[in-house]
Design a protein around this nucleic acid. Sequence first.
DNA 1: GCAGTGATCATA
DNA 2: ATGATCACTGCC
Length: 173
Amino acid sequence: MKQPQAIGAEFFERPAARVARDLIGAQLVRRLDQRILSFRITETEAYEGVHDLASHSSRGRTARNEVMFGPAGHFYIYRIYGLHWMLNVVTGKLGEAAAVLIRGVEGISGPGRVALALGIEASLRGMPASPASGLWFGYPEQNDKPKIKRTPRIGVDYAGPIWANKKLRFVRI
DNA sequence: GCAGTGATCATA
DNA sequence: ATGATCACTGCC
């Protein structure tokens, strides 16, 4: 099966909201054993830099989030509630510490279920999105122009009303 | 609505 | 060392 061209690192060297929007309709591709799984992305969230009170990076650099402070196009992966893996890709300038969370792909809703379906685990932390790492993004179909809706992000009330209400979640409609 | 789950981080 | 928190999910 022919795969779309892999999206390179420069795509991610832009503001998180732009990347999050442009990833809707793109492919998320995983190589597991010798198999290639490919899913169309349907839902993302942007987490801006250290000024974004909903972003992990706003509470400073720690062992968990240090990948966020590194180069764009690498995976920020962490575990939440002791069981669910969250898949993010770092965006923006080096040290900006922004990222995009992959919340949903076609047929699969919820970030934990996305990670489960793709076999995401700790060994991918900090790896670049590329065929060499076994997990990467592919450009959307040329004639696929999805309608996109913007809403507040899910589960970030702890950030306070200003940041919790910003429309940084992108959903294919 | 809410329990489960355990890594992570601040505090000490 | 201890305790609170958590970018969630599944079942009621």
